[in-house]
Design a protein around this nucleic acid. Structure first.
Length: 573
RNA sequence: GGGCCUGUAGCUCAAUUGGUUAGAGCAGAGCGCUCAUAACGCUUUGGUUGGGGGUUCGAGUCCCUCCGGGCCUACCA
């Protein structure tokens, strides 16, 4: 038994997430957390809403709500959707918590003490009309290179030229359209990451078996151009962790907050403290997961995230922890994902394109989505959601291969033996063969699940389901029942036990269906199978069960067409 | 512009890291079964591995080049 700490990238607060966000971090993290728990490991699975930053303020303004209220509400919305998808967080925290504020400020002081924080004076664009400094991307204007009229202050999307906001012709606020922009001087704290470059480089090199996607992005940032750049970790905003506080080693930082990317990863730690608080545990309860001097040295820490998050998790956050000179637990493995596209284009939160978490659950149970998303997870390259593919995958895999197996076994038993595990008969050669095949399949499944190979795991699981149908076809209990009823009894007893086995091993993918299978079997023994032959004797002769309702109703062509039309336009239309 | 990823059957993806005849699922064709959600099982059609060149006894895999798709490029998060 090991101790495994799992974090999923934090979903941003400014709206309901789409399926691309879900499959890129939270869902595979949940798969792994559920699997590790099922294997008997001690798991701490942490996620939270990421609540600070300009987009949160703008989203609140658009909703005409105070930002704190808006975030509190949206946090509850996202938490409810996470529950709806069966995401089994030990704690779903908030980056705006007092725990995070205290820890963020603490780490900033430690970094200052280590000589890794410096003050920088810089000029930034200020919009009097908006009453705020504008991040480069929130300034629009005409591109001096190509004349595109909606170029952003950081880059022109038309000609891809890198820009400085002051390069723009006729600059205006992307928020309000105000054109009375001015350049003001402001002071910010910078994290001197460049001083930690060699240490980070060695640390990355020492990691074994990280995905190429993860290491190549980190290496690029470490070695490109002048190497790792120092990074501003404060912003001129109202909503966030205050930079000026009692005990701060700097002064004159009133009205500034830490940059969201400084405090967001720290929330992984703070959320674990929130977990302890919520359950009334003491400090040691969470510190044993995060402090290598207080018990975390035997923890394996795995992070899940989309590829856009990689630089912050391979460089900024480790720099924060290393630079603090305190013994914080660093990540052991980073599992990163590409993007899921929607029907020929990208999912887009801002444009409302694609299927969002709330809509998905209104249409179909979570297991359908979990299965499709995980079995098509964008591990090696971007992948694509189409309604046709979704319909055929779900119908074939869940309804036909697994659901129908449960149905045919339980109904056959009910009609021939009643709703009780039948007695009599002995295993023969075909049963021995099945157990061999299951042993091999389980071994492979466990290996790829241990390695977090998500698609491959789904394939292996499906292959295990197929073994049941193959067995039934050859054993043909409907034929043996006529000549040797005790043989049919043995075969069906085995098949009923196979359903239990499937429920257990499928639970990380489709937890609700697994629970219904176990409930129908009247069984509460979720012990992960050791030897397949032993696991197939868990339900003894005479054990009562009930025939469950159809596990997975098929998606009809009419439904598919209706959804296709419904989601072809924009959200809310 | 620079960097990285990617291109394999009609579709979605594999291929133990250079090893022999490139494999699965879906779709198509044929056969079987009749317990089951018209489900299941077996067999089978289908590939000049984006194009071209090179290295090698041997290339889907390594190198060069061209073509296509995608991501990142540090103030969106």
């Amino acid at each position: 038994m090991a101790r495994i700490l799992i974090t999923s990238a934090l979903p941003y607060i400014n709206g309901i997430k789409h399926l691309g966000n879900l499959v890129g971090s939270q869902l595979p993290a949940d798969l792994y957390a559920r699997y590790c728990r099922a294997r008997g490991h001690e798991v701490m699975f942490i996620c939270a809403t990421d609540e600070h930053g300009t987009p949160a303020e703008l989203a609140a303004a658009k909703a005409d709500r105070p930002v704190a209220e808006y975030c509190a509400e949206m946090h509850e919305t996202q938490a409810a959707l996470a529950r709806g998808f069966g995401l089994s967080f030990d704690h779903f925290g908030r980056s705006s918590s007092m725990r995070n504020q205290a820890l963020t400020q603490h780490l900033a002081v430690k970094l200052y003490d280590a000589g890794l924080i410096e003050e920088v004076r810089e000029k930034q664009v200020y919009s009097p009309g908006d009453g705020r400094f504008l991040p480069d991307r929130y300034i629009e204007g005409t591109c001096p290179n190509c004349g595109y009229e909606r170029a952003r202050g950081d880059q022109c999307e038309e000609c891809t030229k890198q820009l400085d906001p002051t390069d723009l012709i006729n600059p205006r606020s992307a928020i309000s359209g105000a054109t009375d922009l001015e350049v003001r001087e402001t002071r910010h704290l910078y994290l001197r990451q460049s001083k930690l470059r060699d240490r980070l480089d060695r640390w990355i090199d020492s990691q074994k078996g990280w995905p190429v996607l993860t290491t190549s992005i980190a290496k690029k940032w470490l070695h490109d151009g002048d190497g790792l750049q120092d990074r501003g970790i404060t912003r001129d905003l109202d909503w966030g962790v205050p930079v000026q506080f009692d005990g701060a080693p700097w002064s004159g930082m009133e009205g500034k907050v830490f940059y969201v990317w400084f405090d967001a990863p720290i929330e992984y730690i703070a959320a674990t403290a929130e977990w302890a608080d919520a359950l009334g545990h003491d400090e040691a309860a969470w510190r044993r997961w995060w402090r290598t001097d207080e018990g975390a040295d035997d923890v394996r820490y795995v992070q899940f995230m989309g590829k856009d998050n990689v630089p912050f998790h391979t460089l900024s956050f480790p720099a924060t922890l290393m630079g603090s000179a305190e013994p914080w637990k660093l990540v052991d493995y980073i599992k990163s994902f590409n993007y899921l596209n929607y029907d020929g284009g990208q999912f887009s939160t801002s444009q409302g394109r694609g299927v969002f978490m709330d809509q998905a659950l209104e249409i179909l149970p979570a297991d359908y989505w979990r299965w499709w998303l995980l079995s098509h997870a964008p591990e090696n390259s971007d992948s694509e959601f189409t309604w046709e593919n979704f319909q055929t995958s779900v119908n074939k895999d869940l309804a036909d291969v697994l659901g129908n197996f449960v149905s045919r076994v339980t109904k056959f038993c009910r009609s021939k033996f009643g709703e009780v595990v039948p007695e009599g008969g002995e295993w023969g050669a075909r049963e021995t063969q099945l157990i061999e095949d299951l042993t091999q399949g389980l071994d492979s499944y466990q290996t790829v699940m241990d390695g977090m190979m998500v698609r491959r795991s789904a394939q292996d699981l499906r292959a295990l389901w197929v073994l049941g149908n193959e067995y039934l076809q050859e054993a043909a209990p409907w034929a043996s029942f006529k000549t040797a009823p005790e043989t049919a009894a043995m075969q069906i007893r085995l098949a009923l036990n196979l359903i239990r086995l499937y429920a257990i091993i499928s639970q990380p993918f489709i937890p609700d269906a697994s629970a219904r299978m176990m409930q129908a079997l009247g069984c509460d023994d979720w012990a992960w199978p050791g030897a397949a032959g032993d696991a197939l004797q868990a339900l003894p002769p005479g054990h009562a069960f009930t025939v469950p309702d159809v596990l997975f109703a098929k998606i009809t062509d009419e439904q598919r067409e209706a959804w296709q039309a419904q989601f072809s336009g924009q959200r809310g239309g």
